[in-house]
Simulated scan of single mutants.
Amino acid sequence: MSTDTNRDALTNASAISTKPQSQPSTNDTYAHKVLALVAQHRLATSPQLHQLISPEGRRQTISAVLNRLREDKLLSYTVLPASNRTRAWYLTPQGARVVASWPELRGRPVQAPSGGTDAGLRAAHTLTVLRAHLAFLHDARARGDEYGPLDWVPEVAHRLPDTGGEDRLIADAVLHYTAITPRRLQFRAFVEVDRATMSSERLSRKLISYARFHEYLPQLPGRRGTVADQDAMLAWQRFYPRFPRVLFVLTGAGPDALQQRINDLRAMVAGHPLVTQLAGKVQLGAAVLEDLEQYGATGPVWSPLSSTNDERRSWMEL
């Protein structure tokens, strides 16, 4: 399909707006926001998109936008099993082509699932990761902090030193957050969302990957780099002014099982020299997703992994 046809489809979809008295720009339309968010988060349900875009608005408005984008073949959906026919929306190949060059998605690969089956197989984990984002977003809105629907970037990959059979670290998400009160502070965090579908030992091993990334110094061509080299730059410093804190968000099991997984993460911090070294420089924490949703992401629901004291804190105070 030609670029002009794609543009016409988006323009038609963009005609739905909450500003009927004036013609809004494309960037201000709900259609634009829906497409950008589905592209960013890979998959989102109708209620999740409503919460992301307009939690105080009418759900029918977002539903109308979604149906129009489906008619224009920019979005499609899969029906989640055992969910009272909840729809999870994803980009079509045509939709992926439309949004690929949008500024808010620059540097992000825009991918369309191969179809409803492919999307459905990704749904459980992808939508749980989005639940965690919504917990942070709802809390930020209540606090008046600067954190928007696109400030949570899923599936961020970084290279690791190619030892141990693993050459990439893929975080479930990277969070970019600016707190306003009591003073302005910028935070970044790697977020790992665990649904208790892997062993606790495998979950804890992720801390080793983060510790390796923290120490990873890429080799310069033709020379053996060391941290002492004037031109040496650790791999993470190419992307972040400070190494992001590492947050584990747990769900999918009972309270005792989730607490044991937190204990196992703490045991890895205490027992692995490289992870112990990481914990001396980087804030590490874990919390239960349902607690984030009930008490707020900045509530005292986070267990610091570098301490045996189970006094819960805000993720900003780890």
Rank of each mutant, 00 (worst) to 15 (best):
R205G: 13
R205V: 07
R205W: 06
K206Q: 00
K206C: 02
L207K: 04
L207N: 02
I208Y: 09
I208N: 12
I208W: 06
I208T: 10
S209A: 13
Y210T: 06
Y210V: 00
Y210P: 00
R212S: 02
R212H: 02
R212Q: 06
F213S: 12
H214P: 12
H214L: 15
H214E: 10
E215N: 08
E215D: 07
Y216F: 12
Y216N: 06
L217I: 05
L217E: 04
P218H: 01
P218W: 03
P218T: 01
P218A: 05
Q219L: 03
Q219H: 10
Q219S: 06
L220A: 13
L220Q: 13
L220E: 15
L220F: 14
L220M: 14
L220N: 14
P221M: 09
P221G: 08
R223V: 06
R223I: 05
R224L: 14
R224P: 04
R224Y: 02
G225M: 07
G225A: 14
T226S: 14
T226G: 13
T226M: 10
T226I: 07
T226V: 10
T226F: 11
V227M: 13
A228Q: 06
A228T: 09
D229A: 03
Q230E: 03
Q230K: 04
Q230F: 08
D231C: 01
D231E: 08
A232L: 01
A232D: 01
M233W: 15
M233F: 10
M233N: 12
L234N: 11
L234F: 07
L234W: 01
L234Q: 04
W236R: 13
W236S: 09
W236N: 04
Q237F: 03
R238P: 14
R238K: 12
R238M: 14
R238I: 15
F239R: 12
Y240S: 14
Y240V: 09
Y240I: 13
Y240T: 09
P241M: 05
P241F: 05
R242W: 08
F243W: 09
P244N: 00
P244Q: 00
R245W: 03
V246G: 07
V246D: 04
V246W: 00
V246C: 00
L247W: 01
L247A: 05
L247M: 08
L247G: 12
F248G: 07
F248P: 05
V249N: 01
V249E: 04
V249F: 04
V249R: 02
V249K: 02
L250S: 03
L250H: 11
L250A: 06
L250K: 10
T251D: 02
T251A: 01
T251N: 02
T251H: 02
G252E: 06
G252A: 08
A253I: 12
A253M: 06
A253Y: 09
A253D: 15
G254W: 03
G254H: 10
G254V: 10
P255Y: 06
P255D: 07
D256S: 11
A257Q: 15
A257F: 12
A257Y: 11
L258G: 00
L258F: 01
L258H: 03
L258S: 01
Q259K: 05
Q259V: 07
Q259N: 09
Q260P: 13
Q260G: 15
Q260F: 14
R261A: 07
R261W: 08
I262K: 03
I262F: 06
I262Y: 10
N263A: 12
